[in-house]
């Protein structure tokens, strides 16, 4: 079913090679960002993918781009389709879909705060979501060093020891070696 669907869609949309992760889970790239809205609308209204499971981002620092994943679910066919869209890391502006799925509003607020990806037009997108009074880099960006930030902000208590779990458990379970 998913193969047919992807084939049909590929005729009109610039889809990449699909990855059939599981029998009910498919990943596919969308190369053209301007086709996102029409593709999502078609999937929702014609193909029965009525539920937005999640909208999340991955920071590909080395490639200089963000990946947005729109995961849609078709309840009747028990199929999940994840659309992957790429944004330029320097610009980082996505298209808001809060009018297609109202839940996207919350996801977009989170992405705005945690990755710094802007969604112009999305309601309350510039308000604080989870963090309060955050002035640094968005913390989920990979060039934000959370360990260094925490060491520069919060004082350590001396005496903390760190052990490698593998060697520690090996030593504990088999002391003779």
């Amino acid at each position: 079913m998913m193969r047919d669907l992807i084939e049909r869609l590929t005729q009109r949309y610039k889809l990449g090679a699909p990855v059939f992760q599981r029998a009910d889970l498919t990943f596919v790239d969308l190369a053209a960002n301007d086709q996102l809205r029409s593709l999502l609308l078609e999937l929702r209204d014609r193909e029965g993918f009525t539920h937005l499971v999640l909208l999340t981002a991955v920071d590909w620092l080395e490639e200089g781009r963000f990946q947005l994943t729109y995961m849609l679910n078709n309840r009747d066919a028990n199929q999940t389709l994840a659309l992957r869209v790429y944004l330029d890391r320097e610009v980082a502006v996505g298209e808001t879909i809060h009018d297609i799925w109202p839940t996207a509003e919350t996801y977009q607020r989170e992405l705005r705060e945690m990755f710094g990806i802007d969604f112009p037009g999305s309601p309350r997108v510039d308000e604080e979501f989870i963090l309060e009074g955050w002035t640094d880099l968005p913390p989920y960006r990979r060039d934000f060093d959370t360990l260094a930030y925490s060491q520069q902000t919060y004082r350590d208590r001396p005496g903390r020891e760190t052990t490698d779990p593998r060697t520690h458990m090996k030593h504990k379970l088999y002391p003779e070696g």
Partner: peptide
């Protein structure tokens, strides 16, 4: 609360409560 525990490298969690 003592030394950060498993959140020792978190950007948003305090490490020493007695501060």
């Amino acid at each position: 609360t003592i030394n950060g525990g498993m959140y020792w490298d978190s950007y948003n969690t305090i490490k020493r409560l007695d501060d």
